[in-house]
Amino acid sequence: MEITNQDFSNLLQYIFMGIQRGSIYALAAMGFNIIYNSTGVINFAQGEFVVYGGLMMVSLTMTMNLPVPVAFFFTVLFVMLIGILMERLTINTVKSPTVLRLVIITIGVSIFLEGIAMVSWGKNSHVLRHFSSSETFEVFGAMILPQTLWIIGILVFIALGFILFFNYTMTGKCMRACSINRDAARLVGINDRKMVMISFALSAGIGAIAGIIITPIIQMDYGRGTMLAIKGFGAAVVGGLGNSVGAIFAGILIGIIEAFGAGYISSHYMDAIALFFMLIVLFVKPSGIFGSSEASKLKEF
């Protein structure tokens, strides 16, 4: 079979589409990992952080007409506040926490936040202006949105910030200590409860950024949280739960698989293909395709 130019540009198109969606899964997966590492809990409300990021940004820029950077800042702040409130009002108040109970609480928070989002923003999907121009430009025949470049750029920026934070700041190092051994961390004077709170704030902030940058492309409605959460979790599992560098690559991989599935198989089954891949990895190599099973036992960010 001869590969024509058209085939190549289609392929390139799908790859860019995959990277663009995959970046969001990668960010959602990083959010999962931060909370998983600090509490051992899978936070089912992670998708809701993404939704709130997108919807709040819509309100601030489209109805209140704030400039994008200002709105960006306030949206992230707002969602981080939700994350902190969630931790202080629910997770922190539980006297005898079992993982089962905490997980169900996060499911409760997720339904609650979804309900609130529906009441405040309605059931319809919301449009957000692109950060810069919404005109596509051509790269080897593939049409690319400038927003895609924003997404990739912000993902790289966050990944770098993430590495710097966990390796070079005191708070980041304290959080790592807590995730490795919480009792030992407490013995050396680290306030572990505060670290849990910070992890919720960070996780919510990253989720919000994911929501903000993807909304111009996919539009946002209140009910998207669950699907985003499943795929974000898929990325976290494929990358090795708790391993955020793995999660970034896994997120993009899932995004690309999804885009190929939509392009070459059927767009009806687009979501199913990504989930199927996640299930296969979960069953065949639950430690993730980037991690060894020994490394996955040591929780690291």
Binding site: I42, F44, V99, I230, V237, A272, L275, M278, L279
Partner: peptide
Amino acid sequence: PSLKLRGHYLAMATLGFGAI
């Protein structure tokens, strides 16, 4: 596969399976 693992993998596996 998911119940052989410790933790709440089943929750996400069933969630993914339900969505599929």
